[in-house]
């Protein structure tokens, strides 16, 4: 599936296409993995004061202006951006559709990469602002997030009418993911316009559940179940930077080690683990993690191919 569009109303200078695997993650010796997973950077429409000090320090003043932040994130290597419209949350500014659209347009104007747009996470406001955004950006092939069993009608309609795609989110459950996909496709949105967000648990905070449900989804997809064959997206940054391990520089046991190193490794380890269980897009927060995870993906895609796999080993 492709995010972003360069023509017909789309003004992107690059697009991102993910999916197409015919094997478990990175096992290219037995099946095709034609496209590499993509790395997105998360940015926010208002200054995220409560973010970890490690993040606020590296993004600096740019984090006060979504357009400047977007440019800095792309310079840091992000292949696409995830813009969270937090300012529309009733408790955090209560911005209306006009301000939401302005933020999205500012970001689209500042960078050429594709965009994922997240609502504030409050059902009514999500619908209100995402629909406005969908209409104002017709043809850009934005990913509208999150589309859940509660609001999928509105979000899918917004995607259908304006040439966008959706991120369908379900809470770590194979059957719930399938059900949501069925509901979405019943509305006429083709399933190559759906990303699946199986819900991310961070390292130390439920990652094993995400890991296993994603493996089960991918296995089901390889068995031919079309309702589980959508590329998967994981909100790694949001989850891993919420935890004490990446938020607290002081007042933690010395065995946790240096704060800056530990916090970034927390995000990297969460991302690499979920890439191994089938993530096609990881949304990250720290530039060092973006860089390192991209390197890891490249190495997994194009690294040394063992000689052993080509020879007549006893049972290969």
């Amino acid at each position: 599936m492709t995010l972003g569009a360069t023509g017909d109303g789309g003004t992107r200078t690059s697009t991102v296409t993910v999916g197409g695997e015919a094997t478990l993650p990175f096992l290219q010796f037995e099946g095709a993995m034609p496209l590499k997973p993509a790395v997105a950077a998360e940015i926010v429409d208002i200054y995220p004061e409560d973010w970890s000090p490690a993040l606020l320090a590296v993004w600096g003043d740019e984090a006060r202006d979504p357009a400047a932040w977007a440019a800095k994130a792309v310079a840091a290597g992000a292949e696409l951006l995830a813009l969270k419209l937090r300012g529309c949350h009733p408790d955090q500014g209560d911005h209306g559709p006009a301000e939401a659209v302005a933020a999205v347009k500012a970001v689209l104007g500042a960078v050429g990469v594709p965009l994922i747009v997240y609502g504030p996470g409050v059902a009514d406001k999500d619908n209100e602002v995402l629909v406005a955004v969908a209409e104002a950006t017709k043809g850009e092939r934005i990913a509208l997030a999150n589309c859940t069993d509660k609001n999928y009608r509105t979000i899918v309609a917004g995607a259908l009418g304006n040439g966008h795609v959706v991120v369908g989110q379900t809470p770590i459950d194979v059957n719930l993911a399938k059900q949501l996909n069925i509901l979405i496709s019943d509305m006429g949105l083709s399933l190559d316009r759906v990303l699946l967000d199986p819900t991310t648990g961070a390292l130390g905070y439920g990652i094993e559940y995400s890991y296993s449900v994603m493996e089960r989804l991918r296995l089901a997809a390889l068995m031919g179940d079309s309702m589980t064959q959508q590329p998967m997206i994981c909100t790694v940054g949001e989850e891993s930077w919420r935890q004490k391990e990446s938020r607290s520089p002081d007042g933690v046991p010395p065995e946790w080690g240096d704060f800056a190193t530990r916090a970034v490794i927390w995000e990297i380890a969460t991302a690499v683990t979920l890439l191994q269980s089938g993530a096609d897009i990881v949304v990250l927060r720290h530039p060092a993690a973006i860089d390192r995870v991209k390197q890891a993906i490249d190495e997994l895609m194009t690294g040394a191919v063992p000689e052993a796999l080509a020879v007549s080993s006893p049972a290969v």
Binding site: E245, P254, T261, I265, W266, V272, T273, Q276, Q295
Partner: peptide, 30 residues
């Protein structure tokens, strides 16, 4: 950080013994 990537991948997929080179609690704990 690169060592963290390799060790993470090895823990997730099938290594029974993983050998680290950095003596760094910020690596050990994750």
């Amino acid at each position: 950080e690169g060592e963290a990537v390799l060790a993470t991948a090895a823990i997730a997929k099938y290594a029974s013994i993983v050998v680290l080179d950095h003596i760094d609690p910020a690596l050990f704990y994750p």
